[in-house]
Design a protein around this nucleic acid. Sequence first.
DNA 1: TCGGATTCCCAAAACCTTTTGGGTGGCGGA
DNA 2: TCCGCCACCCAAAAGGTTTTGGGAATCCGA
Lengths: 362, 362
Amino acid sequence: MLTQKVLGVKGEEDPAMGRPKDTGRTAGAGRGAEGGRTVGIKDVARAAGLSITTVSHALNGKGQVSTRTRERVRQVAEELGYRPNPAAQVLLSGRTGVIGLAAGHQSSEPWERTYRPYYAAFTAGAMVEAVDRDYALVVVPVGPGTDLWTRIPMDGLIVVDPIAGDPVINEALRRGLAVVTDGRPIDPAHAELPYVQSDIVTGIGLVMDHLHDAGARRIGLLSGSELDSFTLDSEQTYAEWCTTRHLPAAVERTAPGEPARDAARRLLATRPDAVHALNRTYGEAVLAAAQALGLSIPGDLMVTVMDEVEPGTRPALTTLSLDPRRVGSACAAALIDRLTGAEPEPVTVPSRLVPGESTQRG
Amino acid sequence: MLTQKVLGVKGEEDPAMGRPKDTGRTAGAGRGAEGGRTVGIKDVARAAGLSITTVSHALNGKGQVSTRTRERVRQVAEELGYRPNPAAQVLLSGRTGVIGLAAGHQSSEPWERTYRPYYAAFTAGAMVEAVDRDYALVVVPVGPGTDLWTRIPMDGLIVVDPIAGDPVINEALRRGLAVVTDGRPIDPAHAELPYVQSDIVTGIGLVMDHLHDAGARRIGLLSGSELDSFTLDSEQTYAEWCTTRHLPAAVERTAPGEPARDAARRLLATRPDAVHALNRTYGEAVLAAAQALGLSIPGDLMVTVMDEVEPGTRPALTTLSLDPRRVGSACAAALIDRLTGAEPEPVTVPSRLVPGESTQRG
DNA sequence: TCGGATTCCCAAAACCTTTTGGGTGGCGGA
DNA sequence: TCCGCCACCCAAAAGGTTTTGGGAATCCGA
């Protein structure tokens, strides 16, 4: 009886399918040099015996065109397979319907970040929001010597973690693009830009309180060399927290190009009983350095990290999660608000603490 | 001593930064209705007292222009902040430097898939490949009633899991776009398209052998309602495997719109001792249905699933992983080959089996 | 039959750049 | 002195669409 089903599966299939033995070679279509030029509105007009104007009006429901003519134009256009050239429409209207997402720091290997969970989730959130509002999102690489993005038409740009004097922002503004940033712009020249930020102040507070409650008294911070608001605010909030509690503070930063593990080693040399790391890489570096020193976790050292966790899973390291999907969504919303004339609402997205084993003593 | 460091951090910062108390309101720039129109090549020509032609030549290093003039043009253009309008360049050259990635089936909620790990990894792979070869990647939503993607200029399109008579492919071809698919095109009309595919035949073989080695003799397959090559090839390979081994086969499909759990229940009613599920959702549905029946895993029922696992982690469910990043990369490469005149190499990306607890008896 | 209002349609400008195919003036050689 | 060549530059077309500002019929009432 089971076998019957399988036969059924085999038999009732579309006859079109065959085993994949054919090679996937290239086809004929395309705007190549071959015969078939694309059919333009001009061709439709000629075929219908009408003017270009009338065809345009008929197709777009704009001007005064008799119903009969309108219908005939539709018919002819359909037969010819006419499709308006998007590039021409963009040139004319100035509106592309595309917003860009600048991925990658000027200061770092641009694409390394793409793989990171934060970017992936951010992108997904921004994409959905954009599409909901009838925009497409193009993720563009930026970085030293990468000007590809300037050659692709777009209406606005989302810049993640802007830095002081951010060249991408400057170039975008010069081009007349609307700009929204994820993270407060550091540069005073960009202070007027709309932005979305994660609630780092509260988030760092959550982490520190959590560690403190777990018994930590010498909490170190492993930070980065990038001067974005996330890093700066994290460091500052951390410092204020320590000062308020009259507890010692130790910040260590990875120099540009330096392996995170070296910075982690330096930090552990200050003998902290807990460390908060500003991203996953740094967190792993702390773990590695701790292991090299024979420190047990969480017994000798508690570790927390800024990272993204899959919803519903429990991370090994206690994690401060920034909800990047919501941040991305908010960025896209703000940018599109700006493009459509609405005043973007300043947004602060709350972060949440996901406890893991790395801070659970006993 | 620890405290000193913190003071250092607070003190040596760029004076530009301040606490984030200012609201992120909108700025002034933009091509809005306000005064500042964008400066075009015409403005540069006028300012330099030259013709448009000469300016263009000077800026692009094309025609015969004296070094002195060339330099002066550069100077003026810089001062005016001239940037060529990408839309005009696209209209003229016909080349956008953008390739699209169609996300979502015509038959399914378009965005549901975006969140899936497969898409995320696929996108990342395609994006990196595209950028390496000086193309940008725009992820466009497709689905019933979604024609947004047709309005954005691009040179080619990657279609994931094409179905019979795929409307996206047809529309793309009609527009003269180059098309590459992830998964062999089902429709005979698209048989000539270049494609990249995962090695499903080998992959299913791995899964079935693995289950068989673990003692399974009545292996069921939980499949989907989409008629793409992934589904079809999986089912067919599965059926052939069962036939060759003279073992019973049971395939159950979720009807469109039907909760996966119902199909899983139907499948378990055939009393299999192992089930392979064609995606994560289906795998979870099998687990849920098994639990409802009081079946223990892997004791009473072994479960395998097609899914992506983070490299270096061990999944709970034994997983057939398709290496979507490589697939995405190969798709982008093939598409760009096609655009640049090269003949795309047909590619088959191997899949790998990652054993988990769900098939380890004893 | 004429004027005016309608109805339907069209020519041309505009969007911005690149490229083609000259055109102009100066210089050297004859 | 004249011719040809060279160096430098430019006008105009092309690319495909939308929109502006009419223009030519047609129809109605007077």
